[in-house]
């Protein structure tokens, strides 16, 4: 029992000790004030602490600096005229208000129309083009008209290369790629035969149709 009372008193003592500086300057709430007053009556430690704090309060150190209000305000005065005042929202409202009431009616509506056109153009530029799909696969060069790919032996001469292509009825539309492949165009009805002819030459390493698979 005694231990519990002692614990409560210790807790109260700590609370009061923390509040003492603001008791000295009289800024506590009524409840805190009552607590401190009741505790201090019976606590010599807090009474001594209070005395010490009152001494500290009484000897506020003097300021060595001696700022001059006239000089300081004179320095600030020109800055007041050049400084934008108010929050951004208020500044915007003031600007719009000044604009609306400070210009002739024809000018106001001209500027409003001009602003609307600029806004509409901005919106159009920011919107993607209708339904046009600009997707292009890297491997299929339909626009180039190629429907077969061929890879020749690196030692094949240009003359032999031309002859082989002529035999197959194909002509080059693109290449060579980094893997020495050429994109060929062959009439669709002759694609299978062309692939067969190409493969029959020793100089051809690879010949493949780029179609859906029907021509292979």
């Amino acid at each position: 029992m005694n231990g519990r009372i002692l614990q409560l008193n210790n807790s109260e003592h700590r609370t009061v000790r923390a509040l003492l500086p603001w008791f000295v300057v009289d800024t506590l709430t009524a409840e805190e004030l009552a607590l401190v007053q009741a505790h201090v009556l019976g606590c010599t430690q807090c009474q001594a602490d209070l005395d010490w704090q009152r001494k500290l309060l009484a000897v506020e150190p003097r300021s060595n600096a001696n700022p001059d209000v006239e000089r300081a305000f004179a320095k600030l005065r020109p800055r007041l005229d050049t400084t934008q005042r108010g929050s951004k929202r208020r500044v915007l409202i003031e600007f719009l208000n000044n604009f609306w009431h400070g210009n002739p009616q024809w000018m106001r509506w001209t500027l409003v129309a001009q602003f609307s056109v600029i806004l509409a153009l901005t919106f159009m530029l920011a919107t993607p083009y209708g339904n046009v799909v600009a997707y292009r696969a890297l491997g299929i060069a339909k626009n180039a008209g190629g429907n077969a790919v061929v890879v020749f032996n690196p030692e094949t001469s240009e003359q032999d290369l031309r002859r082989i292509l002529q035999d197959a009825g194909a002509h080059i539309v693109d290449g060579p790629t980094v893997t020495d492949a050429y994109l060929l165009n062959v009439p669709k009805d002759k694609l299978s035969a062309a692939i067969h002819v190409l493969r029959s030459h020793r100089a051809v390493v690879l010949a493949e149709s780029l179609g859906s698979g029907d021509d292979r």
């Binding site: 150190p61 060595n64 600096a65 001696n66 700022p67 001059d68 000089r71 300081a72 320095k75 600030l76 800055r79 007041l80 400084t83 934008q84 005042r85 108010g86 929050s87 208020r90």
Partner: peptide, 25 residues
């Protein structure tokens, strides 16, 4: 007590009061 410099004190007071002038609203 914070700065110990008379010129700095005046400068900070003026900067402070300039904010008051700008942001009073």
């Amino acid at each position: 007590r914070m700065t110990r410099s008379v010129y700095l004190i005046e400068e900070i007071v003026n900067d402070t009061m300039l904010v008051v002038w700008q942001k009073a609203d």
